[in-house]
Design a protein around this nucleic acid. Structure first.
Lengths: 144, 144
DNA sequence: TATAATTTTGAGACAGTTTATCAATTTCAA
DNA sequence: TTGAAATTGATAAACTGTCTCAAAATTATA
């Protein structure tokens, strides 16, 4: 149960080492909780972890999730007023289909779209670093 | 100078009429300021208009920009923590190339990407209402 | 055009989210 | 084990956007 996310833990340790940061109990705890889900808000994780460690501060969650972003394990996404942190450690880049009815999120990847994005960027003299594509609509269940 | 945005003004009046809303001096002032630019935040407009009307309240700006969204003249976009209101009165939907160096924003449209988005949505049983595509990177000037 | 009903405004209070502060604690290299 | 440096937790503060409500402006109607 503790050695489930070995690879990601190594990635984190590498990042910490490179930036003279330290590995703490909290960072381990938050990493494990984070890797257990696809999308989560800092607030949701705060409540989730309150059972495991009632004194874990909200600021620490924010700091740590932002650290994961720097380390390339997470990616922050703004949905309206909420910021969700995505787990991008075990997969490549992906985009989202978001149901505005039930808030369900479906991930997808489309090589062709990615290729066309590069094309558009090149046409405009840009070099793309990242991108974000979100499709909002109704899923089949909410359409009825 | 005052009759530059007649068409948009008509569109606004039509919306107001349909919803038993009133045309006010502030709404006219904000509409004209809004149409002068492509992307703006409520806060930026607040400062911009302080010269013309020092007592124009920030809440009024927010209310009015949201009204423009309802009327189909504007579209709100969340860039990180900022919400920018886009002028979409004179053009259709468009996406953005954003330079992370100088914050320059280039708009673009790509039929093929839009088509592929529909395809992805259909494959997943979704009906798309809106979407958002943002490409982040460096423009040709900032790359050097 | 005057009146009255309704909407809008401005100012600040308020709410939600994220970051800053700082003393106390923890980590880790030597 | 020790000590310099980083981290934490609690809370204050910052920020963005909305709500409240009395006063003012607008519009339909007489």
């Amino acid at each position: 149960m503790t050695n489930k996310h070995v690879k990601e833990m190594e990635a984190l340790k590498e990042h910490l080492g490179k930036h003279q940061l330290k590995l703490t109990r909290q960072r381990e705890l938050i990493l494990n909780a984070f890797l257990r889900q696809e999308h989560i808000t800092a607030e949701a994780m705060y409540h989730q972890l309150a059972k495991a460690d009632p004194h874990l501060g909200l600021a620490t969650i924010y700091r740590t999730l932002n650290l994961f972003c720097d380390a390339g394990l997470a990616q922050a996404r703004h949905f309206g007023s909420q910021t969700k942190y995505d787990n991008v450690s075990h997969k490549g880049h992906h985009d989202h289909l978001i149901c505005t009815g039930c808030e369900m999120i479906v991930e997808f990847e489309n090589e062709e779209i990615e290729r066309l994005q590069e094309e558009v960027a090149t046409q405009n003299g840009f070099t793309i670093k990242t991108h974000r594509l979100e499709l909002y609509g109704l899923c089949s269940r909410c359409r009825h």
